[in-house]
Nucleic acid binder design. Structure first.
Lengths: 206, 206
DNA sequence: TTGATTTTCGAATGAACATTCTATTTGTTG
DNA sequence: CAACAAATAGAATGTTCATTCGAAAATCAA
């Protein structure tokens, strides 16, 4: 989203370094054990500091969870922002490639696990819900603008959501079906995305 | 899947009643607090029995989680089995309606939360993974048979997975975007599903 | 260097939790 | 009804965990 081009003092740099040390450790533990079985002791050990010290940077474990959700959501949003620069005619292809390719990597399976955890938490914790909805709205706005103004299509909001259905649906599918044949899937996925971005969708010839 | 037409004695009936009492209570608590923050005390209270007594029916809390995952997966599989009886020409429509309608209900939002929790756990606990993959394979086999043998389409496995991408993707989307306009979505979703089930998909006219 | 400030540690605390165990109640059967 | 088995309760146990706190170490200012 908006950014800080403000330079940082040494102390501030240190502080943000420590914070991302903690977040990296927390993310790792959360993937491995889930939000609520990952103990502060484990997180602290992985971040190479004492448990007590974490409380100089975060008010509570909940605050760490919120920060993780925020960071991961922001990263996902960033990834979507790349589509902005893509040529209109190739959008479906590029998005398909990115969806499939990013998912074929181990790191993104882990990312998916974190996403599941986040979405579950989202229905219980209003603060988490707020963070997730904020980032989702941002991504949607970007994509809707692309579809409406660059591609000149109607039903832009609905098409946006349909595109995003493909992304999260694919991630979900890969967790449930470990034998998924990506080779064949990618062909159908590309055509499906192209169909979603075709002017005739939503205007059925009867 | 296969079933037991065997009649039950009074004692057995009681036993299964108690067990589903526990599972209902557990499911409720798991949705509300997640697998690992839901304490046995809370589950016991909701099931109207003592914590200790639960251990007459389940070896451990892990066993309850496994049982919940199994039950919920089996229920999802049952719901998919209904599509078996649907007329070929209407499959896409019926599946769309079912996906959208089932998701528009509050209960299915809660079901989605449980699904997220399950999928996250699936990547950490091999026993859970096994249960989930088993049920997913069952659903896929049903649907693939439908697509290949009733609709006479090629690429049946890939089309199956694409259909399932739509289902889980839609559930996911609704959690992330609470403002989702189902009215417009349903139109695009139906056409997308029809495209996935059209013989021309996968055989692009260049 | 000295004093002040910040960073860091790790033990102490208290709550929550899964599980076990013993005792009590309920139900069944001869 | 008596004796036995099954069901149930709930307190006790030992562990794990988030959080707090006082002190030690490092950093900085003068």
């Amino acid at each position: 989203m908006e950014q800080k081009p403000i330079p940082m003092t040494g102390a501030e740099k240190r502080r943000t370094a420590r914070i991302s040390q903690i977040l990296d450790a927390a993310a790792h533990c959360f993937v491995e054990m889930g939000f609520h079985r990952a103990g502060m002791a484990k997180i602290a050990a992985r971040a190479k500091m004492s448990p007590g010290h974490i409380y100089h940077y975060f008010e509570s474990k909940e605050a760490i969870i919120a920060a993780i959700v925020d960071r991961e959501s922001a990263r996902a949003a960033e990834r979507f922002a790349e589509f902005d620069a893509v040529d209109s005619t190739e959008l479906a292809s590029v998005m398909t490639e990115r969806a499939v390719q990013s998912i074929a990597e181990k790191t993104d399976i882990l990312q998916s696990v974190l996403n599941m955890e986040m979405l579950a938490e989202c229905q219980r914790n209003p603060e988490i819900a707020c963070i997730i909805h904020k980032h989702d709205r941002y991504v949607r706005d970007q994509l809707t603008h692309l579809i409406r103004d660059k591609l000149g299509l109607d039903l832009a909001e609905a098409r946006t959501d349909m595109m995003m259905v493909q992304f999260s649906g694919l991630a979900n599918r890969l967790l449930r079906n470990p034998d998924l044949d990506l080779q064949n899937m990618v062909v159908l996925m590309r055509q499906t995305m192209m169909a979603i971005l075709s002017p005739t969708l939503g205007h059925e010839a009867k």
